[in-house]
Design a binder for these strands. Sequence first.
DNA 1: ATAGATTTGTCGGCTAGATTACAGTTCCAC
DNA 2: GTGGAACTGTAATCTAGCCGACAAATCTAT
Lengths: 225, 225
Amino acid sequence: MYEDLKYWYLRDHKLFRTLSFGQIRQLCIITGFKKAKKGEIIYFSSSDLPRIFLLKKGNIKIVAVDEDGNETIKDIIQKGDLFGELTLEADSQSNEYAKVLSDDVAICSFLMSDFEDLLLRNPSLALSYTKFVGLKMKRIKNSYSNLISKDAKTRLFQFLKDWAEKEGKKIGDKVVIENYLTQNDIAQIICTSRQTATQLLNEMETNGTIIYSRKEIIITDIRKL
Amino acid sequence: MYEDLKYWYLRDHKLFRTLSFGQIRQLCIITGFKKAKKGEIIYFSSSDLPRIFLLKKGNIKIVAVDEDGNETIKDIIQKGDLFGELTLEADSQSNEYAKVLSDDVAICSFLMSDFEDLLLRNPSLALSYTKFVGLKMKRIKNSYSNLISKDAKTRLFQFLKDWAEKEGKKIGDKVVIENYLTQNDIAQIICTSRQTATQLLNEMETNGTIIYSRKEIIITDIRKL
DNA sequence: ATAGATTTGTCGGCTAGATTACAGTTCCAC
DNA sequence: GTGGAACTGTAATCTAGCCGACAAATCTAT
C-alpha cells in the first residue's frame, strides 16, 4: 500500500508519464521514502549510493558549502521537482545539503544506477530526460546572466516575478505568494547582502508595489513587474 | 572523398566513437560543411533547421545580443567541441551568432532531428549524451559561481588557469598559450570592463606572473596559479 | 609607406552595494 | 508569559570596479 503510493508519486511526474507500471516498479525496487520537518537538514550528496530525488511535498533549499565555509543557496526545490545527481555523474567533492523550508516535506528517491538501466531500455525516456536536463541548463544560464548584467533591484524584481509565476495565487491583478523564505534567503538567491535585500523590499513596500510579511507576499499589481 | 572526411570528423569525437560507420553515415546524410576565415560572423541559431555543430578546426566565440544591443560572450568553442542546440530544444528567441577568432575554421553540422533519431535507436549513445550535457551544465554552474563570489583578479587567474589547461603547451613549469583573444574578449569572458582587464594583465606582467603579447601568453610558473 | 581602424595603456571621478554595527521585532520552547 | 534565538530595520563607512576621455601602439589595406 505504502509501495503503491510511491508508484503514483513517480507516475505523477511528467517525465515518467509514458512509463508502464512495470517500469516504474523496476525503479522503485530500492526506492527510499522520507519525511522531514521544517528546519531539518538532509544530507544527500555524499550519502551512500548516488540517488535521484523527487520532492513530493513542500519546499527545500539546496545549500553548498565551499572551502571557506561560506554557504550559498544553489537551488530552491519545489513540490514535484527532481533533484540530486541529475547529471548522472556522481561527484563526490561537492559538499551540499538540503534544508527543509516548509512545515514538512515528503521525498522519494531511486538509485541513479537503476535509473540508468531504465534509460538504456527506454530510449524515448532518455531523450526526454536529456531535454529535461537541457531545459534546466537553459534556466540556469538565464538566471546567472541576470545576476551578472542586472543590478540588485532588477534581480529582486525578476525573482519575485518568477516566484509569483511558479507559486503565486492570482486574485485579479494581485498575486499572493506563501512566503517560506527569510529576507536572508532571498538575499542569497539574488546574490546580494541581507541589508540590501531588506532595504529594497521595504522600498517596494512603501512604493505600494508589494505587501510584505513573514507569512506571505502580496504583489499588488503583477503587470507592473 | 570529401564525404568520407566528414565521417572521420564525427568519428573523432569521443561521443561518437562507439558508433558504427553506418550510423555515422546516417547522421551525415544532410550534413553541412563549412569553412570560414578570421573575423567572419556565422549566424547559426535562427538559421533554417535546428542543427548541432562540431568545430573541427580553430576557435570561435559565441556572442549573444540582448534587447538593448549589449553583446555578451556566451562561450568560447574550441577544436573538437560541439555547439548549437545541444539541449535538443530549438529556441527561436535567443539571438546568438558565432565569430571566428582563429585564422580559419572548419565546421561540420548535422540536423537535430537526425540526431534525435539516432539517439532513439541507440540508447547507450543517448545515455552518454545525457551525461555529456550534464557535464556541460556542471561546468557552467561552476564558472558562474566563480563570477559571483570571486573578484575580478581571481576570475582572471582562474580563466588563465583553465585556458592553460585546455590549450597550453607545457615547457617545464612554463605554459605557452596561443593568444587569439583581445583584452576586450578576455574582459567579457571574465565579466569585467576592458580597462580593469588591461590593468590586471599589466599588473601580472610587472609581477612576472605572465608575459603577455598579442600573439601569445606565457605563464612563467603554472604552479603559482 | 601611409591612413585609417583596431587594440592597448592610464587616469580621475563616481556609485552600487558590501561591511560593520546596533537596535527593534517576532517567534518558539520551556 | 518569559527569555533567548532568529529575524528585520537603519545608518555610517568604505571600496572594487565601472565609466568617460584621451593618448599611444599596433595592425591592415591600399
